[in-house]
Amino acid sequence: MSVDTDTVKRVARLARIKVSDDDATRMTGELNAILGFVEHLDEVNIDGVEPLTSVVEQTMKKRVDGVTDGSKADDITQNAPASEDHFFMVPKVVE
């Protein structure tokens, strides 16, 4: 399988990365090189093989459903590019 420039633009839109027409053209070639490489997997017989979901055989640890942390609004918003009264500020999203 290979991608065309329109597909690259669509995927970039899904990934929320702005790409120019020139970027999209260049990236199409690069992505096709990678997709061509991963096509080697088509040679492998995977009939009846289960996908690997965890490399370690361990039941997922569960923690107690309790409050262990909190009241850190200053910490949480201190790195925000824009914040006010412990809210993250974003461009208007509702008209």
């Binding site: 399988m1 995927v11 970039a12 990236m27 995977i46 093989v49 996908p51």
Partner: peptide, 29 residues
């Protein structure tokens, strides 16, 4: 960016089985 785009593509509707699921099966092998 290249890796985010590859990742977004292989997880996108219609391609998940052909890429991601297959890779996870190969990983088992």
């Amino acid at each position: 960016k290249r890796r985010i785009l590859i990742g977004t593509y292989v997880l996108s509707a219609g391609y998940y089985d052909a890429y991601y699921l297959k890779a996870q099966k190969v990983r088992t092998l």
